[in-house]
Computed example of a mutant assay.
Amino acid sequence: MRRIPRLAAVAAATAALTVLAAGPASAVDPTVTDPHIVAHFDFAAGETPENIALAPDGSAYLTFAYAHKVVRVGRDGSGPTDVATFPTVVDPTAAAVTGIVRAHDGTLYVNYATGTADENGIWRIRPDGSAPQRIVKVPMSGFPNGLALDEKCDTLYAADSSRGRVWSAPVPAGDEEVEATLWATGSALLPTQELPFGANGLKIHDGAVWVSNTAHGTLLRIPIEKDRTAGPIETRATGLDGIDDFAFTGHGNTALAALNTQNKLELVRPDGTHKTVLTRADGLDGPTSVAVRAKTLYVNSAAFFNTVDPDPNLLLARISRNKL
């Protein structure tokens, strides 16, 4: 499979790109203060946090991409405590546990990208502690990455980084598996020859599915039509080199985007302008994902591109809220 070569290609290509200058200041920008690392992880053991979902008590469920597991880390940094480990595949070095979401009843849904027929897709981890089970099949050639759950209609959406598309699937009530359905396609979602990692992070927000595209450095909005089909793809921000996952700061369309290869957290305004709010000096080391709960900001770093002294970690900070 392809995870490591693709990430290396992203790093090599984006290193040559110039960094976009910060956009104009805004009186309503949220502020990010008091960044501090609460937990460090073991890079050699595959403890590379790829994605994050928050529990009601403020603890975080993290996917460890190369350890092929989900862990729980307390808001104070306690842990990590193992939640579930995924089955071993033919080539475990090429598999990755990626996106994660938590339903209100405590059920976790997780993407496992393996390139194999029996494992590639979306998995469910029930709160009772039973073993993870695949519930949505994604084609072997697909790389399910960002993941979101629309609980109003029990629908899962997954970004496919290798094929540049968005899949959807109903949440099965029982233990049966369902096939992923192609929900959105278009050139805006595709990877490029230079950067073979397209659609990446994914969130449901403001009546739409929002997707980041690593290859193009863009943040996209895809309206959800009344019949639940995908509307025209809108480009909402550009110049986000190395963008991975992202999160919204509140009810409006201001977002915080992890620029993996740039070691930056970027604040993206509703008009598409953006500025850097955290850097490597604050503790970022290849940031992969972002979450916001009340006045607390969570940022994972996986240190994928640090060949000298990798420091995968979980960073917390304080964030003000705006109303846009």
Rank of each mutant, 00 (worst) to 15 (best):
T214M: 00
A169L: 04
R236G: 06
E234R: 09
D244A: 04
A281S: 06
S301T: 14
I52F: 07
T93E: 14
A158L: 03
V110K: 07
A184W: 06
D82V: 13
G217M: 06
S212L: 00
V10T: 12
N322W: 01
E177H: 02
S78T: 15
A247F: 07
R134D: 03
L324N: 11
V101K: 06
L219T: 11
A215Y: 01
G207I: 05
V209M: 10
S59C: 00
S212M: 00
D29E: 14
M1N: 12
G186M: 02
E151R: 08
I100T: 05
G286H: 08
H40M: 05
G198I: 09
P87D: 12
I122C: 00
D118T: 12
V136T: 07
D241F: 12
T185Y: 04
I122D: 06
C153E: 13
M140T: 14
A13C: 06
R2A: 12
R102N: 11
A15L: 10
S26L: 07
A215K: 01
A65P: 11
S78G: 15
A291G: 09
H36M: 10
I125W: 02
L315A: 09
V136N: 01
A247M: 03
K226Y: 09
R236P: 05
E234V: 11
V299G: 05
A294L: 08
P223Y: 08
L190C: 04
S168N: 15
